[in-house]
């Protein structure tokens, strides 16, 4: 065995080796190289530069103050009340968004596995929010919450939720719900589509067998559907969590992080720091902190996935 494998390079000589190299080393990279090149230049190198920025003072407004400052940015971050507030906001933003997106998405997916008249049209229309450009979803919902042209404050007032029709995005206690509702609207189709595909992959004879065994609809749902979907649900929810935690567009357009930073999440804080204050060093430090938090989460996720796949 050993002497055979060591011998295996010899016969055939260079010609065989060249063809093997061609097929296993060169040719795939020929197809891959543009992708690798672009990802490297536009994502990987900036990532490294970004990490190095976090140890420097780079403020475009103070061009003569540039230089290495060690951990200064991180010390500043540690005592930055706004950062900790943003972290807390990130948690609530992500938690409520994902919970509602998932539950409503699951409900929609279940509905879409049943038969009803006009299903194709229904499906296309319900999935439509997913196709609406993010900035437009944000603007639309901002307008809907505006008492001048939007009906929502008036409805909420007449339902007794609000004392009078005012814009909830001006109220630090409620403002976060504006972007969250927009996010739910925008994200339900994603979950519905993903879960629908998973539901359709459940073999039909499992349902038939359950029916023959006399299971009720509720039993079928809890004993067959949910366990079957569980691994897929876990992975999708977790990946989506990361995505939503990073997702600053809605918040930036709808509230800009205000009022009084009550809707500032970490990623929108990065953007405002970089874009408005042009303080790249500090923005990069926040970004590294966020990356670190998400990385920890991702490692946990991969560990969990391994466990789930095994069982």
């Amino acid at each position: 065995m050993t002497d055979r494998t060591s011998k295996s390079i010899l016969p055939g000589g260079t010609r065989a080796r060249r063809s093997l190299y061609w097929q296993y080393l060169v040719e795939p990279y020929l197809y891959l190289s543009p992708a690798i090149f672009l990802i490297g230049i536009v994502m990987m190198i900036p990532l490294i530069i970004g990490i190095s920025y976090s140890f420097q003072s780079i403020e475009l407004l103070k061009p003569f103050d540039t230089g290495w400052v060690g951990l200064e940015n991180y010390q500043k971050l540690w005592s930055d009340r706004k950062f900790w507030l943003a972290l807390e906001n990130t948690f609530w933003w992500t938690f409520w968004s994902i919970s509602f997106q998932f539950l409503l998405g699951l409900g929609l997916a279940m509905l879409l596995t049943t038969q009803f008249y006009g299903k194709k049209l229904f499906q296309a229309l319900v999935f439509l929010p997913w196709a609406v450009p993010t900035f437009l979803s944000a603007l639309t919902w901002a307008w809907l919450f505006n008492p001048v042209i939007g009906p929502l404050p008036h409805w909420m007032a007449s339902l007794g939720i609000l004392s009078e029709p005012y814009n909830i995005m001006g109220d630090p206690n409620l403002a976060m719900w504006g972007p969250i509702v927009a996010n739910i609207w925008f994200g339900v189709p994603f979950f519905a589509i993903t879960l629908l595909a998973a539901l359709q992959s459940i073999p039909n004879d499992m349902y038939e067998a359950a029916e023959i065994d006399g299971a009720s609809a509720w039993q079928v749902f809890t004993k067959i559907t949910l366990p079957f979907l569980a691994p897929m649900i876990a992975i999708t929810v977790m990946l989506r969590t990361i995505w939503i935690a990073n997702f600053a567009d809605l918040i930036y357009v709808m509230t800009g992080g205000g009022p009084a930073n009550s809707t500032q999440i970490v990623s929108s804080y990065i953007f405002t720091t970089a874009f408005r204050k042009l303080d790249f060093g500090y923005a990069s430090a926040i970004a590294v902190a966020l990356l670190f938090i998400l990385l920890t989460y991702a490692v946990f996720l991969l560990w969990l996935r391994k466990k789930l796949v095994k069982t």
Binding site: I39, I45, L47, G50, Y53, I58, I270, F280
Partner: peptide, 20 residues
């Protein structure tokens, strides 16, 4: 690597990209 790029906050590289 491609999967990781899907996970990290793209905003993280907004400053370096701007400077580049």
């Amino acid at each position: 690597i491609m999967l990781i790029t899907q996970m990290f906050p793209l905003l993280m590289i907004i400053a370096p990209i701007y400077k580049m």
